[in-house]
């Protein structure tokens, strides 16, 4: 069983937290913090297994993690999971993210935390590994995205417009317009 899946960056900021056993929010944050402290002090060239922290698990649990660029992917698992298997699962997860976001980077995870959750839910369900085949996972995700797009359809048109307007970043653009020039131009314009 997988007890928790945590993704955080090199500074310990959570980017994804999925607990398959209930902890209240403050305890969750403590666990993330503790896990970060355990994981971050390890070199990159040491092994990826770690005896569990005090807050989560116990002697039966292990932290299995991978470090990619700015992000740590940490799985907290018990002894029924194969260590190397979980490492491969992390790889599959990250590769799936890479496919979904096209060259995934930390920003993708920051701004699309919900999408990451949806992807993860195709890999792991309730702490058990659901699907490990990337093609299958991608197929499921694409089909679901298609449904979302269909539903968006016309009703989402105003929403899209709004977001387009928003992304125009109006305040900035208004500022960018050189207002002083305008009166000058008008002045210069001779009738």
């Amino acid at each position: 069983m997988i007890k928790a899946i945590l993704v955080f960056n090199n500074h310990g900021k959570p980017r994804l937290s999925k607990f398959y056993q209930y902890f209240d929010e403050s305890l969750q944050q403590q666990i993330i913090k503790e896990t970060f402290q355990l994981v971050s002090k390890r070199d990159d060239n040491v092994c990826n297994f770690l005896e569990g922290g005090s807050l989560i698990g116990g002697s039966d649990y292990k932290l299995i993690y991978r470090h990619y660029a700015t992000l740590y992917f940490v799985f907290c698992v018990d002894s029924s999971e194969s260590e190397l298997g979980i490492l491969d699962l992390i790889q599959v997860f990250v590769e799936t993210l890479d496919k979904c976001f096209e060259n995934v980077c930390e920003l993708d995870l920051i701004f699309h935390a919900d999408a990451v959750h949806h992807i993860l839910s195709e890999l792991v369900m309730g702490g058990m590994v659901l699907q490990t085949n990337m093609n299958d996972i991608m197929a499921r995700i694409e089909e679901q995205n298609k449904i979302v797009k269909q539903e968006a359809g016309i009703s989402a048109a105003p929403a899209r417009a709004v977001s387009a307007v928003k992304s125009m970043n109006i305040p900035q653009q208004i500022k960018d317009i050189k207002l002083p020039d305008l009166p000058q131009a008008i002045k210069d314009f001779k009738f």
Partner: peptide
């Protein structure tokens, strides 16, 4: 740091 790609160029995938 954020824009740094995660760099998953070494797929192990021995299981799947």
């Amino acid at each position: 740091d954020y824009e740094q790609p995660l760099g998953i160029s070494t797929p192990s995938k021995e299981i799947f």
